[in-house]
Every structure is written in C-alpha cells, then in structure tokens.
C-alpha cells in the first residue's frame, strides 16, 4: 500500500509503467508480469477469504478456550467424561480414516478401471452423504441399524454406531480425491512394468500407489477432520451414553447449556490441536510413501 501512495508524484504522467519497473523481479517480461499481477490479486483475495472464514474464528475459539487461564483449561479437559468423549471421537475418526483409505481407494479403482452395469449410478450416489442433512441421515441409520432393523443388524447405543455414522458421512472424501488422479494416470508405466514381469501387486505397490498417495492422504485428512466434528448423524443412533458412546460435541453442548463457554472452547481447542497433529502426520507419512515409491 505504501508503495502505491508514495510513487505517484514523480510518475504522474504514466503511472502504470513506472510502477511496473519499480516492482523489479518480474518486470523484464511482460507475460510474467501479467501472471504476477493476477496471482497477486488472487493471493490477496485468498488471504482475506481464508482469514475471515478460518483464521479469525479459529483464533477466537482458542483465545476463548484459554481465557480462564491454564487451570480452567486443564480442568475442562481433565474431566473424566470429557476425556472419554475425546478419546472415543478421535479414536473412531482414526479408525474410520484407515477404513476409508482402503475402501475409498478400492471404490475409486472400481469406478475408474472397471466397467459394470450401474457404474454411473454408483458414481453419482457416492456424494449423497454430503447432500443429506445429517439429522435425516441419523434417522435413516437408526431405522436401518437400530432396534427395528430390517436387516438384522442392531448397533444402536453402542460404539459401533459412532463408527457407522462416521463411515457414512466420510465415504466420499477418499473416493473423490483419488478418482481424478487415477483417471489421469499414465498407464504406460504400468504396462511397461507388466512387460518386464512385475506382478499385479508389485505394479500397484511400486507404480500406482506412489502416484495416488498424495490424493489418498488429502482424502484421509478431510475424512478425519469431518469425522472428528460429526454430530448430527450419530446423536440419535449412539444414545450419548456417558463414558461409552458420548462424543465430544455432546460434551461441548453440555458446557454451553451451563453457560460455560470457556469450558466449551477449551474442549474445542483440544480437538483442534489433536486434529492438527493428525493431519500433519498424515502429510508426513504421505511424503515418505511417495518418496519411497
């Protein structure tokens, strides 16, 4: 900003070119300059957008969480019931993420590499969990996997209910991340490996998988984050039983009901911190796998 306000006086006659030459790095090439200017704008918009939607709310949560000092913060997260809820939520989200990594990749593989009747239908239906209001999803899950189950599976009010609800809402993430990459994947490398006598498994492990790893990791991170925060689809099915099936969101609600916003924000902060660590770990793992390939 200061550049813009200070430069005009000497260059009033032709401001644009002069500013261009001032900005150095990219001025020697008209083409690069245009891109630079465009991406400068994009960067600005992206940062404003990101700050307003993500950074400021997150900081507000953390600031509120630590408002009562470390003791209040510590007390909130050392509550036995809250601790059990965090453990259940994070543990379930991790398990579900692992399942999604395998099943999501498999489904993406089938959708891209195989031809079968109903493929397009399946391809469309994958996204339905996104479109369904979560409370509706909860009702559907309860009627299918609750006491009145028509298919003989009653997992209502057990920890399996939490897993099921997480699986339901996170299914699309890995599939949709892997699918486009798999479609773009150059198959010549696979064919070359096959002609050199590599087994299908070796080809998948040494050639296909490394190319897919970043996409799988991206899907896994999204899947984990969504799982940790899921609430609507599981509350009816899980029964909120203390120390057993109660997820963190219910504990946060309980704090809010008691007008303890600091406690609620403290629990949310712990969840944020754990999610951050997990997502960073997924990224590190991804890089190692991709490098090894």
């Amino acid at each position: 900003m200061s550049d813009v306000t200070t430069t005009p006086p000497p260059t009033r006659a032709a401001p644009a070119p002069d500013i261009t030459s001032d900005s150095g790095v990219s001025s020697d090439n008209e083409g690069t300059f245009r891109i630079g200017r465009g991406s400068g704008l994009a960067l600005g918009v992206a940062m404003v957008w990101f700050s307003l939607l993500v950074m400021i709310p997150l900081i507000a949560v953390v600031v509120t969480g630590t408002e009562g000092g470390w003791s209040a913060f510590w007390r909130a997260i050392r509550n036995e019931q809250t601790f059990a809820a965090i453990r259940l939520t994070v543990g379930s989200a991790l398990i579900v993420t692992l399942v999604n990594v395998v099943m999501g990749t498999l489904i993406a593989w089938v959708l891209v590499r195989d031809d079968f009747v109903g493929k397009r239908v399946l391809d469309t239906l994958i996204d339905i969990p996104f479109a369904l209001p979560t409370i509706v999803a909860g009702l559907v899950l309860l009627s299918l996997y609750g006491p009145q189950t028509p298919i003989g599976i009653d997992i209502a009010n057990t920890r399996k209910a939490v897993l099921l609800a997480f699986l339901f809402v996170t299914l699309p993430f890995v599939v949709r991340a892997v699918q486009p990459v798999l479609e773009q994947l150059d198959r010549e490398a696979e064919q070359a490996a096959a002609s050199l006598g590599a087994s299908n498994f070796t080809i998948f492990r040494r050639i296909t998988l490394p190319a897919l790893t970043p996409a799988i990791a991206a899907g896994a991170a999204l899947s984990f984050a969504r799982g940790v925060s899921e609430y609507g689809s599981l509350v009816l099915l899980s029964g909120n039983r203390p120390l057993r099936t109660e997820v963190t969101s219910v504990r946060i609600l309980a704090s809010i009901e008691n007008d303890n916003r600091v406690g609620a924000a403290a629990v949310a902060t712990v969840l944020l911190a754990i999610s951050f660590v997990v997502i960073v770990t997924i990224d590190i793992l991804q890089r190692r796998v991709a490098r090894r390939g």
Binding site: M1, D3, V4, A16, I19, T20, D22, S23, G24, F33, G36, R37, S39, G40, L41, L43, G44, V45, V48, W49, L52, L53
Partner: peptide, 21 residues
C-alpha cells in the same frame, strides 16, 4: 511488493470482495 502494482480497479474489486465477506 506483489500487491503494489495493482491498479485502482483491482484494488476496488478486492475491497468489494472483502466488504462482501
């Protein structure tokens, strides 16, 4: 330094977006 060469028009657009947000 990257946003410095923005033309007024672009600045206005950016401000508008920010205001909207």
């Amino acid at each position: 330094s990257r946003t410095a060469p923005l033309r007024t028009k672009h600045l206005l657009a950016l401000t508008a977006v920010a205001a909207l947000v």
